[in-house]
Design a protein around this nucleic acid. Structure first.
Lengths: 349, 349
DNA sequence: TAATTTAGTGTGTTCGAGCACATTTTCTAC
DNA sequence: GTAGAAAATGTGCTCGAACACACTAAATTA
């Protein structure tokens, strides 16, 4: 059982005043070599960690954390993040934590840039963001670095750019999870489809990673008789998303499993029952519409990316850094939760 | 944006001294009705919550939390709990949190009672325990109540006894999760077995709950052609556990899915391949031996009860209560994680 | 009316870290 | 040997809550 030493304790042990101890610790100079040695001798013997509570009280600083994330009105996937933010704000308001939300449209780089500029102009101590647009995010990150604003990301990564904190899921591996589930369901012979459904393009790298993981699993398995076909059901200049889905359903005749790499499974889940009644869907994310179809057994599994947990964890890590000098663990990968009708409830809080 | 008011602020607003404000807040009397009114008027207008950091610093109290849990040498299921305890101890030692571990043999009520007595005799501020033995746990809980020791449980519940904090999993529901997985795998026709494998009896209620949930799922489903047989593979006075497993494997000839309600799936996973090579196992818990067989595809799914998270959460809730006056949320139910070969890694930390 | 209790109020100290400022010691120059 | 600068060291205040204690004013008793 070790004692928690205070500066006063150390001063007494070393035979100097707490001022001198303080100067040694903060390397502020103005200390004689004799005194330095005396203090260091004590410091070597005992293990001193400053009391974070006293530190925090003295500091009495307000930390501004900016969060840049998509508007949940545009995509309900982001809604749980808001809850996490509210919760954190409540819990830590008395610790001097202020949070400033910046929302952007998930399909507009312009909106992203605008929201980012606005949020940065207020000179926060940290910026937590969803870097949906890699190039633009990189520029923002660069600006933060210059202004010595701590930078953290969640849900997505910035390629080739170091950040202080990076929280997300192993997307490649989540593709493998889906593949494994299909493998269990269908055994040796399977006709599979990977569907990228999205109205916008910014999730491209996300979707690709998942597809790669999915294929990787099957490639590694030997003596399996399978086929994987990839479809891009995106809105483009010529045809709408709905039309694209419709034509997909008309063209494809036999498919055992459909892996949908975005949270838009619900767009397929309903029409599919008339076209491909025996196909099984695995999708992503616990948004309300997906859960509805999960309950109706039109979606077999959902993979949960837990955006709420991602935000919560990011924010607590930032706060612990500011308040208690806790070092960042640069990259954190969250579990890949497998969801079915029987366990979705527990993940919703 | 609301300000964080201090006692001094309130004193000034009310035109009294901080001493008077303090007396009003703590209802210590010695306040004139006139002053009381003045202070209450201010208190009604603003929202005051005392600064938890200042409070904690002033308090400067050491909180002793006792933990009563099984010896991991007897059952590796408990090993992750130790990590959580170490982590918490490290993280909160400067907040005046001291943790005292009490270990007991998971098959001996005597050992439980002894460890409990020892731990309580040191008059901790809280006792967190795994109430494996209901009757004995109830007695201990009663003693805690008398000594006004806060009481929390994890992994198991105490029947008919109120505790301050109760953290666990919905076992009934986890049985349903397993059933759903089998239903997905086998479709309309399935021959199923529920196996209770354990050397001791103290998990009886646990196992029963899981069995009930499992059966409940199939009972609710209509037009399914299924059979569920329940086996108790426990050591008893006449035959050993190994012999019991052996005889089970010899007797049973055709079974599609086997649901094992304890963490002992590994005992069955190996011998089964020669007797029932086509049977699929769903078990519980990420203990090393189970993971080994999961990787070899001899166990299809594991349901994760996350004892580490249970301890971590229990302890942080207790600490938040002591340090920051955060009220208890009496009962917390953790998610039921579905684990396969592709996602187990992320749950291990 | 003076002496003394009692209700009501305000002041000052503590917790530990951190820093400004005051004080003491040492060094340098003439 | 002493003035003056420079270096080294110690003291004291702050953050906000909590409580002990000192103090004032009103009430009670002799």
């Amino acid at each position: 059982m070790k004692k928690n030493y205070t500066i006063k304790d150390i001063a007494e042990l070393a035979g100097v005043s707490k001022g001198t101890v303080d100067r040694v610790m903060h390397k502020r100079g103005k200390v004689s070599s004799k005194a330095l040695e005396k203090v260091n001798k004590v410091l070597d013997k005992i293990e001193y960690k400053p009391n974070p509570i006293a530190k925090s009280l003295k500091n009495n600083k307000v930390y501004n954390i900016a969060i840049l994330l998509p508007d949940a009105n545009e995509d309900p996937y982001w809604l749980p993040c808001y809850e996490a933010i509210d919760q954190i704000e409540n819990e830590f308001s008395h610790f001097g934590i202020k949070i400033n939300k910046g929302l952007f449209k998930p399909y507009s780089t312009k909106s992203f840039k605008k929201a980012a500029e606005l949020v940065i102009s207020k000179k926060p101590d940290a910026l937590l963001m969803v870097p949906l647009f890699n190039k633009e995010a990189e520029i923002i990150a660069e600006k933060c670095l210059e202004a010595s604003i701590k930078i953290a990301t969640f849900n997505n990564y910035i390629k080739d750019h170091k950040v202080n904190l990076e929280i997300g899921q192993n997307l490649f591996q989540s593709g493998r999870v889906a593949a494994k589930l299909f493998n269990m369901l269908f055994g040796k012979k399977a006709s599979l489809a990977v569907l990228h459904i999205d109205e916008a393009f910014q999730n491209a790298s996300h979707m690709q990673e998942k597809e790669r993981g999915f294929k990787d699993y099957y490639t590694q398995k030997e003596d399996l008789d399978y086929s994987i076909t990839v479809y891009n059901l995106n809105k483009n200049s010529k045809i709408s998303l709905e039309e694209n889905i419709e034509s997909f359903l008309k063209t494809v005749h036999e498919v055992d499993g459909i892996f949908i790499t975005t949270s838009k499974s619900y767009l397929l889940a309903n029409p599919i029952s008339s076209y491909l009644p025996n196909s099984i869907i695995i999708g992503y994310d616990l948004v309300a519409e997906n859960i509805k179809f999960l309950k109706e057994d039109k979606i077999a599994f959902l993979i949960h990316q837990d955006p709420k947990k991602q935000v919560y964890l990011s924010l607590t890590r930032l706060i612990e850094f500011f308040l208690f000098d806790k070092a960042f663990q640069e990259s954190v990968t969250l579990p890949i939760d497998i969801i079915n009708t029987e366990n979705y409830q527990q993940y919703l809080d």
